[in-house]
């Protein structure tokens, strides 16, 4: 167990360094400099002043040196100062935006699991039935729907046509005057569509994986044994089958975290939600290197945390890995 943990920790450190090195290299080797954006904003800036700025931000040093300096600060949790005119700490900026992105992603993950797993199981059990065919078609359609398009359609239907739900932002105009209960309801009403949209693709994918995983398990000898013992079909499927069928799902969930984080840019832009995805979009547009790197680093940490959770989940479902 101890060697397993050491190995995992070492792997995580290597992966973290790898992610940050690749991100850093790509961002800093791309042609153009952040000072170009500043020059665009202020055309009167002299070449001397530009050189001074570049020196101030350390952009004149080789990329490897810049990375080493950045990494030295990051281990002490110093993300640096944003290039933007407010010069606020990167960490402060991220901290304001991170929770809402996390809430939306976690809520959509829970919804994905709650809907996709039962669908996957029942279409595997009733294979080739009408139900199975309908869900299979649904999955193919669901897979192919671009999330941002679904968002537009829902905004049009529930927002513009029915006037039922707000289409943008997190809070209504009169938010401050609402009672506590009113505030909760108001935020919930703003979050219904974003959470649904970000869960939609995942429901299709995970239910498909669950179906094929369950089909694989149903053929196994221990399932025949369980049925032969005279257990009820429900017990055979949900106790003996489910546990084994869940194993690949845990792995896939772990692997899908980078995709979820990346997807937050799209739906936060569509719904004007002030989360990390929107912040990333803005930081990229203004070439705010410290902020871009800060968000990519947080993304890497979240991914690694997700992988760790997946490993622990795997161990919880499969006693063989605990040895």
């Amino acid at each position: 167990m101890l060697t397993y943990l050491t190995k995992k920790t070492l792997e995580m450190v290597v992966t973290f360094m790898g992610i940050t090195i690749i991100s850093f290299a790509i961002i800093h080797l791309a042609p153009g400099k952040p000072t170009d954006v500043m020059a665009d904003l202020n055309p009167k800036i002299t070449p001397e002043a530009r050189a001074k700025l570049e020196k101030y931000y350390g952009l004149d040093k080789p990329v490897a040196v810049q990375y080493a300096l950045w990494f030295k600060r990051i281990v002490m949790l110093d993300f640096g100062e944003s290039f933007s005119s407010d010069h606020r700490q990167v960490w402060v900026k991220i901290k304001e935006r991170l929770p809402i992105t996390l809430y939306i992603n976690i809520a959509s993950l829970l919804i994905i699991l709650a809907i996709a797993i039962p669908i996957g199981i029942s279409s595997a059990v009733k294979r080739h039935s009408l139900y199975d065919r309908i869900t299979t078609v649904g999955v193919f359609v669901g897979f192919a729907v671009p999330g941002f398009w679904l968002a537009l359609l829902l905004m049009m239907f529930f927002g513009v046509y029915l006037h039922l739900l707000p289409v943008a932002g997190l809070k209504s105009a009169g938010f401050a005057e609402l009672s506590f209960q009113g505030k909760v309801i108001d935020i919930a009403r703003h979050l219904v569509l974003p959470i649904f949209v970000s869960a939609f693709g995942g429901i299709a994918a995970i239910s498909r994986y669950m179906r094929s995983s369950m089909l694989e398990v149903i053929r196994k000898d221990y399932m025949a044994t369980a049925r032969a013992k005279g257990l009820t079909p429900k017990r055979v499927i949900y106790v003996h089958g489910l546990r084994n069928a869940l194993l690949p799902i845990v792995t896939i969930l772990g692997l899908s975290i980078p995709g979820l984080i990346g997807g937050s840019v799209i739906f936060e832009q569509v719904f004007s939600i002030p989360g990390m995805g929107q912040l990333f979009y803005m930081s990229v547009m203004t070439r705010d290197y410290p902020l871009v790197m800060g968000i990519l680093t947080i993304g890497a940490v979240l991914t690694l945390a997700g992988n760790l959770l997946a490993d622990l989940g795997y161990a919880a479902v499969d006693p063989r890995t605990r040895r």
Binding site: I22, P258, G259, F280, V284
Partner: peptide, 22 residues
């Protein structure tokens, strides 16, 4: 190892950054 690292990067973020810079 390199493949695992690439798989852990939120690629859409990276794509976005590179396309916006180029």
């Amino acid at each position: 190892r390199f493949v695992d690292i690439m798989l852990s990067i939120p690629t859409f973020f990276l794509i976005l950054a590179v396309i916006a810079f180029l």
